[in-house]
């Protein structure tokens, strides 16, 4: 008997999500069990079955999230643009005052 990890796509275009596993002696039986257990109510648009021994697992956080600042990759790090726009606007206003005088 082998363990097969089951992934399900609930609707066309959506990601394949891990939903559990089945134990079966072969691929055909594994497919039948997975259908019976993970799609009794129109829940699956597509199923993937992967033999458990073929799944490569990584949980080492030093490998996955090394302690290096990577915030420069994220949009959230650039919120300063709002303040910078305000400053530029002020700069132009001051420039206009210098050229045309107070009005």
């Amino acid at each position: 008997m082998h363990v097969w990890e089951v992934f399900r796509q609930e609707q066309e275009g959506e990601p394949m999500i891990h939903v559990g596993s089945v134990v079966a002696p072969d691929r055909e039986r594994a497919l039948e069990y997975a259908r019976d257990i993970y799609s009794r109510r129109y829940e699956a648009y597509r199923l993937w079955l992967v033999p458990r021994e073929e799944v490569v697992e990584v949980t080492d956080l030093d490998f996955l999230q090394p302690p290096v600042d990577r915030t420069y990759r994220m949009g959230i790090a650039y919120r300063v643009t709002v303040e910078k726009r305000r400053q530029i606007k002020e700069m132009f206003e001051n420039l206009a005052k210098e050229v045309y005088g107070e009005s």
Binding site: V3, G20, S21, V22, V23, Y33, D36, I37, R40
Partner: peptide, 13 residues
Amino acid sequence: VGHAQLLYRLVED
């Protein structure tokens, strides 16, 4: 019975 299958898988693991 399907629920039993899901839970027995956890116990086996």
